[in-house]
Nucleic acid binder design. Sequence first.
DNA 1: GTCTATATTAGGATAGAC
DNA 2: GTCTATCCTAATATAGAC
Lengths: 203, 203
Amino acid sequence: MIDKKENTEEKIIDAARSVFIKKGMDGARMQEIADEAGINKALLHYYFRSKEKLFDAILGKIIKVAFPKISGIMVSDADFKTKLVQAIDAYLDILFKHPYLPAFVLKEVSRDPNVFIKIIVKRGLNPKLVFKIIEDAMDRGEIVKMKPQHLVINIIGLCVFPFAARPIIEFVAFDEDKKATDQFFKERKAVIKEFVLRSIEVK
Amino acid sequence: MIDKKENTEEKIIDAARSVFIKKGMDGARMQEIADEAGINKALLHYYFRSKEKLFDAILGKIIKVAFPKISGIMVSDADFKTKLVQAIDAYLDILFKHPYLPAFVLKEVSRDPNVFIKIIVKRGLNPKLVFKIIEDAMDRGEIVKMKPQHLVINIIGLCVFPFAARPIIEFVAFDEDKKATDQFFKERKAVIKEFVLRSIEVK
DNA sequence: GTCTATATTAGGATAGAC
DNA sequence: GTCTATCCTAATATAGAC
């Protein structure tokens, strides 16, 4: 049975997420959030005492999605390259489902890194295990040697950057052709996987 | 002879650039810009009638740096891979000199893509020639085939993303060790060049 | 819980003296 | 050109009725 009438708090959270993602903390207006939620500003403040509190509440939820615990895939005992491909697939699936995440996260992290750090700590996100797994694969000679952080950042950059830069890409690289840009993004999964695999292959 | 007393307009521009880069258009305050320039708000408005006009003036200068005409390197008649390496070097040199560019550009482009588009058009930045050069190299079998946009975006992502994400990287990947993060960034040039060359090599 | 009305403050912009 | 003082609107936040 569908909950036709979602409660007010949910409506606020949905509206706030939408507006904060579009405008960022500084650009967002409480009025706009209230409008999008179909309520008024006073009620907004009744549920969340201040804009900052509301933003923090939303941010926590967003970060959970934006910093997925990909380590689950990496710790399985499959072949390393297989796991890597699975991780890239999983990460891009998230990005396609939430294409505005990268721009939002990069925007807000430069505004105030500490908010992120606090939440990341609370989530117990720790990449050391992943780095260790990568180093082990290198030691076994399965992939070429480099500082594991470089490999991780390379992969994340390849995945994330195009989403953050989509407006420029659409204009500069595809003459504002949205269809062509969509097609480009559809191809990213295969492109990135091949690009990465080729670059780490031991010759 | 040194111009000890730089004129007011310069002071304003320097201050505005600094504040806009740190806070973005939405987060910046005219008061803060005035303070940093050592003048008052009224004088700010005397030189630039509005915040938006001031921002546009700064943005134009920033974009000139952020979107360099790398095509100059690419059109020379050197070997394609040589040119590619030169282009990556040149681009990273710019980023090291202006490490806050990526975060700023990605932030503002998501706020209002049109401002960028206007300025890019005015600068006559057109990547078609670069795409053509890449495709020719592919046709000659010098590098592996793919849509040239993918190669360009991959390279830019590898270069730009770490700068935009530096606060997260420093915390998550290096336990807030600034020295280790600096070292990581120093290594990027060599890492990216090798990463890209390996991935486009024809086997 | 939800609303209308209002307080309060912040921030962009202008007037006018010098 | 530069300042002080002030205006004006937008935006966050609260009071109080229902």
